[in-house]
Design a protein around this nucleic acid. Structure first.
Length: 635
DNA sequence: TTCGCTGTTGGTATT
DNA sequence: AAATACCAACAGCGA
C-alpha cells in the first residue's frame, strides 16, 4: 500500500485536544504529516476584522505551532500565504500529498470554499478526509433528525440532538506527531485580488503579508505579527491560544459551586475584572477549545456534585446548546440565515437603514451587499452615536465602548444594546447592529451573531416584543453604584450614583461637583466627522426620549406582527410590502425609497461613515469564483 | 380545530 | 429586599 502523505489543514480548529479531524489524519498512519494554515485573503479583504480579533487569531496560531513542535521538534504550524483555492493544488503536487484532512465548517463561505477545494483535490488524485467537530452534535445530522428544518427553539434542538445520539466524549490530544516532509515552494505565488477591501477604512499601515511570499518574510512559514497586517494595535486584554483556553477551563471547573450552579440570567452584565461569565466564546470560535471538552468537563462535575446543580437552558451546558441551535438553524437555512431577505424564518419589519439588496438576485445566495439605504438621516445619526458610544445613555455607551475596546461584552449587555438599536429605541435594522458586532466581537460567529440579533429584534426565535430593555433601569438593577459606567464612561466617573444612569436629570450642583456638563450630541451631529471629538468635560445629551420611542416602537412592532410576512415573501422582494403596512395603520416605517440607488450610498460615503460600507464581494470575480461556477455546473 | 402551556435572562407599581 | 400583579399579548407545540 502507498504510504500516506497527509496535509492537515487547520482552520477554525486551532487546537490539539479533542480534534476528530486530527484524529482521522493520524488514523491514516501517515509517513509524513504537514500541519498547515492557509492565510486566506478572503478574511483579510472580504470579511470585517479588528486588531483585537487578528491578535487573537495570531495567538492561537503561535500557541498551536509551539504545541506541535513540543510533540515533534521537526514540526510546526506551516502558515502559507495564499488563498487555498489557488494554493492547495500547487502544494498537492510539490509536497506529493496523498490525503487532505480538515474539520468541516458550516457557514456559507466555508461550505462553498470546501466544495471547491475538495473538487481540486479529486482532480489532483488526493483523497479528502473530513470530520465534524465545531459543535456538540454534527449540525447537518441535527437538521436531518429535525425533518430538514431549522431548530428554532432550544427544545427542538434538544429533541433533535437526542435523536442524533450521545454527545461524543472528547478525544485526547495526540502524544506524538509524524515528521513533516520537505517543503519546496518553487512555484508562483498567486496574489489575491485586493479589491474590494472592506477593511481599508480601519487599516492604518501597509498590509504586507501577501507581499512576503508564501513562506513569509523569513521564509520559515511563521505566523504574521500584528504589525504586518496593518490593523490598529489590539486593545483587548483577552488573549487567544489553546494553552490559555485549557487553563481558563481548569480554573472554571475548579470552582465547583460556580460551574455547577451557573445560571446565565443571574450573571451580571455590569461585572468587570472579573467578568461574571467564562469568556470562553472566542476560544470556541477559533477552535482553541472544543465545545465537547467543555461540555463533558461540566457534565462530569455536575454528576458528582453534592447539591442542586442548574440545568439547561440556564446552565453552562445550556449555553453550548444555544450555540448548537444557531449552528443547526444556519445549516438548514443556508446563506439567507444571516439576513432578512430571502430568509423564510425571519419576520420582515420595515426598520430604518435597510440593507441594499442586489437586484436580480433570485437564488438563495447571499443577496445583501453590506451597503445600506439611509432612509432617515435621524436614524443614521442615532446609529452612528450608538456605534461610537455617544448616545447620551451611560449604560448603553459604557457597553459599546467596552465592546470596541475589549472585543467582548456580556450576553445581557448585548441584549441591552441590541434592543436599544432595534425594537426598543432607534428602530434601526438589526443587520446594521450585526455588522458592528461582526467587526468588533472577538467571538463573532456568523450563525450566533445573526441568530441573536434576530432573537433580540423579535424577527425570529423570540417574539415578545413588549419585553423591552430599559437603558436606565436594566443597568441599575445590576449595578446601583454605576461602577461599570464609571469604568467605561470616565466623563461621569465622579457623578453621584443617583444620576449616573440619567445624568441629564442631575442638578447643576451635582454636575459641577463631578466636573461634567451634559450638552451636545457627541460631535456626531453635523455630517458625522469627528467621532469622539466632543468638547472636553462634556457628556452628550440623551439622543432620544426613551419612553416616547418605546411607545412608537411597540406600535410599529404590533403593526409588523399583524402584517406577518417573512423575508422570503414575494412582496418583500417586489416592494409591495409598503401597501400592506400602510393598510395596517400606525407604526414607524422606512421612508419611501428612491432607495437602493447608488446616489444614496455615495452620500453616506461623503459623511465619512465608511467603515460599515462594503462593496460586493460576490459580484467581483476572482479565479476561485470562476472555478466555483465550473463546479456548480458539473453538479 | 381550539385550548392551554411554555418560552434562557423586562418594566413598573405595589405590598 | 423580595415577591406579586399587571402591562398587553406573540408563536409554537402538544393534547
Amino acid at each position: 500500500m502507498k504510504e500516506a502523505r497527509v496535509l492537515y489543514w487547520f482552520r477554525t480548529d486551532l487546537r490539539l485536544h479533542d480534534s476528530p479531524a486530527l484524529q482521522a489524519a493520524l488514523d491514516l498512519k501517515p509517513a509524513v504529516l504537514y500541519p498547515i494554515f492557509t492565510f486566506d485573503p478572503h478574511y483579510v479583504y472580504h470579511s470585517k476584522g479588528s486588531g483585537n480579533r487578528w491578535q487573537f487569531l495570531l495567538d492561537c496560531q503561535n500557541d498551536l505551532s509551539a504545541s506541535i513542535t513540543k510533540l515533534n521538534p521537526k514540526s510546526k504550524l506551516f502558515v502559507l500565504r495564499e488563498a487555498p483555492q489557488t494554493l492547495l493544488p500547487k502544494i498537492f503536487k510539490a509536497w506529493r500529498i496523498t490525503h487532505l484532512v480538515f474539520e468541516r465548517d458550516t457557514d456559507s463561505y466555508a461550505r462553498d470554499r470546501d466544495r471547491v477545494v475538495s473538487s481540486l483535490a479529486r482532480d489532483a488524485g488526493v483523497e479528502t478526509v473530513t470530520r465534524y467537530g465545531r459543535t456538540l452534535w454534527d449540525s447537518d445530522a441535527v437538521v436531518a433528525k429535525h425533518g430538514g428544518k431549522p431548530t428554532m427553539s432550544i427544545t427542538q434542538l434538544q429533541a433533535a440532538g437526542k435523536k442524533v445520539g450521545a454527545i461524543p466524549r472528547p478525544i485526547p490530544a495526540p502524544t506524538s506527531l509524524p515528521d513533516p516532509g520537505e517543503t519546496p515552494i518553487d512555484f508562483e505565488q498567486e496574489l489575491p485580488d485586493a479589491d474590494p477591501d472592506l477593511n481599508a477604512p480601519v487599516r492604518e499601515g501597509e498590509f504586507k503579508p501577501f507581499k512576503t511570499g508564501i513562506a513569509g518574510p523569513h521564509g520559515d512559514f511563521r505566523p504574521e505579527v500584528l504589525e504586518e497586517l496593518g490593523f490598529p494595535p489590539a486593545t483587548t486584554p483577552h488573549r487567544g491560544g489553546e494553552t490559555i483556553a485549557l487553563k481558563m477551563l481548569d480554573d472554571i471547573i475548579a470552582d465547583e459551586e460556580y460551574t455547577a450552579k451557573f445560571q446565565k440570567p443571574k450573571t451580571s452584565p455590569a461585572a468587570f475584572e472579573p467578568q461574571s461569565t467564562t469568556l470562553l466564546s472566542p476560544h470556541h470560535h477559533f477552535g482553541s477549545l472544543s465545545p465537547r471538552l467543555f461540555y463533558w468537563r461540566v457534565q462530569d462535575l455536575i454528576s458528582r456534585f453534592k447539591g442542586s446543580a442548574s440545568a439547561p437552558p440556564e446552565s453552562l451546558t445550556g449555553q453550548l446548546l444555544f450555540r448548537d441551535m444557531y449552528f443547526a438553524a444556519q445549516a438548514a437555512i443556508g446563506s439567507p440565515f444571516t439576513q432578512t431577505y430571502n430568509n423564510p424564518y425571519c419576520r420582515f419589519i420595515p426598520w430604518h437603514l435597510p440593507s441594499h439588496v442586489e437586484s436580480g438576485t433570485e437564488t438563495g445566495a447571499n443577496a445583501i451587499s453590506g451597503q445600506y439605504h439611509i432612509d432617515s438621516p435621524q436614524a443614521e445619526r442615532w446609529f452612528q452615536r450608538w456605534k461610537a458610544g455617544l448616545t447620551g445613555f451611560p449604560w448603553i455607551d459604557a457597553l459599546m465602548r467596552q465592546l470596541k475596546h475589549d472585543g467582548w461584552i456580556h450576553h445581557l449587555g448585548r441584549h441591552s444594546v441590541a434592543c436599544f438599536l432595534t425594537r426598543g429605541g432607534c428602530y434601526v435594522h438589526w443587520e446594521r447592529g450585526a455588522d458592528v458586532f461582526e467587526e468588533w466581537l472577538l467571538d463573532h460567529e456568523p450563525a450566533c451573531n445573526a441568530g441573536n440579533w434576530q432573537w433580540l429584534s423579535c424577527t425570529a426565535f423570540f417574539s415578545q416584543y413588549f419585553r423591552c430593555y430599559s437603558p436606565i433601569a436594566f443597568g441599575q438593577k445590576w449595578d446601583k453604584e454605576g461602577l461599570f459606567v464609571r469604568r467605561w464612561v470616565p466623563e461621569l466617573k465622579d457623578l453621584d450614583a443617583k444620576y449616573i444612569y440619567e445624568p441629564w436629570k442631575a442638578p447643576r450642583s451635582a454636575l459641577d461637583k463631578a466636573g461634567v456638563r451634559i450638552e451636545g450630541d457627541g460631535g456626531l451631529g453635523s455630517g458625522g466627522s469627528g467621532i469622539g471629538k466632543r468638547e472636553e468635560g462634556t457628556y452628550p445629551e440623551p439622543m432620544i426620549d426613551f419612553n416616547e420611542r418605546r411607545k412608537v416602537c411597540l406600535d410599529a412592532m404590533k403593526t409588523a406582527y399583524q402584517v406577518g410576512i417573512n423575508g422570503d415573501d414575494e412582496r418583500v422582494k417586489n416592494g409591495t410590502w409598503r401597501e400592506l403596512f400602510e393598510a395596517a395603520g400606525q407604526g414607524e416605517m422606512q421612508e419611501e425609497d428612491h432607495a437602493f440607488s447608488d446616489a444614496d450610498v455615495d452620500h453616506a460615503d461623503d459623511a465619512e461613515h465608511v467603515s460599515h460600507k462594503r462593496k460586493v464581494p460576490v459580484k467581483k470575480e476572482g479565479p476561485m469564483d470562476r472555478h466555483f461556477k465550473k463546479i456548480k455546473k458539473e453538479e
